[in-house]
Amino acid sequence: MPFLETRNLTAFYGDFQALYGIDTSLDKGETIAIIGANGAGKSTFLKAIAGLIHGTPDSVQLEGMPIGARGAADIVKLGIALVPEGRRLFPSLTVEENLLIGGYGRKIAGPWTLDRVYALFPILRERRSMATPALSGGQQQMAAIGRALMSNPRILLCDEISLGLAPIIIADIYAALPQIKAEGTSVVLVEQDIVQAMKVADRVYCFQEGRLSLTGRPRELTREQIHRAYFGS
């Protein structure tokens, strides 16, 4: 049985259907990347897993347990944490408070503590008492990842963590990934930067207009295949 599975996952915004029957799976300790063009439904997919969009119970399963209809506050307690698109730190909380609130709903002992997050992203320790709007984009992204780690998630969902950042900063942030994976955490990345995604993912799912258009291991996929999966033919 896969660790996390979506079965025939669909999602709507009002009358607009954003996802059409998505089947995916994630094993323990695995990293998968979701790629695809803008509006392909990648973020919607993460939101559906994180409980911000509700589906049928069976459409998302964690170790066989149906969780597709649960709310976000419940999902995080099960050990699934989302780093939302655009960071979305709490502006009236300091950096450290943002990290602390990450552990609000799921208070379990685990590898990730304040000190451990500061060790992962040392710059955050320096900025700990600053308001988050004063941080640079890269620092905000680090804080957002740190905040999600504070719940000691079993699965980390990352939505476009490279968005709007300079390549050197992106490299910095991705450099933290091996340490996160080393704790046994499974990772789902939504990423526009295909090169980056291919580098770190064990498997790749490509979405096109709300449908799955390609699946495979990065090494086994050709440029043409990906190009076609992105834009159709």
Binding site: A50, L52, V76, K77, L82, P84, R88, F90, I101
Partner: peptide, 8 residues
């Protein structure tokens, strides 16, 4: 929305 993601 993000508060909910924190388990609040």
């Amino acid at each position: 929305e993000v508060a909910e993601l924190m388990g609040i």
